[in-house]
């Protein structure tokens, strides 16, 4: 069968010639390669000092957005949890009390909202499922930690601080939005 990549090679069992059996040419060839690499440009990035550019569609740590007034958008509808293929999301819904209108946009809100970052596969389905445009994936890296329990992120870590909104626009390129839109259509059908 014709290989699609055109990189296929047939492994040969042919007897090696005498020179090949000596291995010395092969060894010298190998040594030439390694020597060449000594002088080639190093690919190391000294991380804390240097950082690498993320791609535009990078999907990092989640954020629960607030609306313009600073109220949480999430209504604990559970669609994200349903959509999550890794079942990383859990939540407990609660009813908004009087006087909490500045905190929660609608009558129902998530009393607890947890994402297990060890389970999460960063697929972005939650983001797509969310009808309230509450949850988004950002370009932030989930930081390392020492204990497994610490990786279950609660609202304290997910909800964006009131005073320091997290910019998600970088990821929301037109192409992405368009894609999302189409997807939503199919989803609804």
């Amino acid at each position: 069968m014709q290989s699609l990549t055109n990189r296929k090679k047939v492994v040969s069992n042919k007897e090696m010639t005498w020179v090949e059996k000596l291995y010395l040419p092969a060894i010298l060839g190998g040594m030439r390669i390694t020597l060449k690499h000594i002088f080639s440009k190093k690919t190391t990035i000294s991380y804390p000092e240097q950082k690498r550019e993320f791609s535009q569609v990078y999907r990092g740590m989640h954020v629960l957005k607030r609306d313009e007034k600073g109220a949480e958008r999430c209504t604990a509808c559970g669609l994200c949890a349903v959509a999550c293929p890794a079942e990383a999301i859990t939540m407990v819904a609660a009813e908004r009390k009087k006087g909490e209108e500045h905190l929660y946009r609608e009558e129902k809100y998530a009393a607890t909202y947890e994402i297990n970052m060890l389970r999460c596969i960063f697929c972005g389905d939650c983001e797509e499922a969310c009808p309230k445009e509450s949850i988004f994936l950002t370009d932030r890296i989930v930081p390392a930690d020492l204990k497994r329990g610490e990786f279950v992120y609660g609202k304290d870590k997910l909800v964006e601080p009131v005073d320091k909104p997290i910019d998600i626009s970088k990821r929301q390129t037109p192409e992405v939005l368009e894609f999302k839109k189409n997807k939503k259509l199919t989803h609804n059908r």
Binding site: H37, T43, T44
Partner: peptide, 13 residues
């Protein structure tokens, strides 16, 4: 260091 260089790394620095 040499190992690193041959592997296009920087090695201990």
């Amino acid at each position: 260091k040499i190992a690193a260089f041959m592997q296009d790394r920087l090695g201990p620095n």
